[in-house]
């Protein structure tokens, strides 16, 4: 089944991005086609490669990037939300790309299910 995912919060303050990550991983393991993960609101902070969590904690920026690399997953950061929060190409983590909000509506149309994670 084709699945689209929307992540509305960043990697630390809320659990939303963690839950989305575990959901996407499980969906891929079950053979579903995750068409795109779209990062909106503070969710754009998941793409900040300058983020440095402490060594004994998970690094969601890297985990998302690794998942994207391994499964050719499309991780899209909303440009308008990103610019406001200082997320630009210079600090974009590997595996993410910046594009327009239309990419969210597009995946909502194309996917069989759209699942939102937020606060």
């Amino acid at each position: 089944m084709k699945i689209g995912v929307l992540v509305n919060e960043g990697p630390f303050t809320h659990q939303a991005s963690d839950t989305a990550y575990h959901f996407v991983k499980a969906a891929i393991e079950k053979g579903h086609d995750v068409l795109r993960v779209f990062f909106y609101y503070d969710g754009v902070n998941n793409a900040n490669k300058l983020s440095e969590p402490q060594a004994d904690d998970r690094n969601l920026v890297k985990l998302w990037g690794d998942l994207a690399k391994e499964h050719n997953l499309d991780l899209v950061v909303c440009i308008a939300a990103a610019l406001r929060r200082g997320i630009k190409d210079e600090i974009l983590a590997e595996g993410f790309r910046i594009s327009g909000l239309g990419q969210l509506i597009e995946v909502g149309i194309a996917a069989d299910r759209t699942v939102m994670f937020g606060d």
């Binding site: 440009i79 990419q103 597009e106 149309i109």
Partner: peptide
């Protein structure tokens, strides 16, 4: 990165109900 062309899905003719 953003210089690469955007990926697009074929959504021609699909009409969905969004809330």
């Amino acid at each position: 990165m953003s210089e690469e062309p955007d990926l697009h899905f074929d959504t021609e003719g699909i009409k969905k109900k969004f809330m």
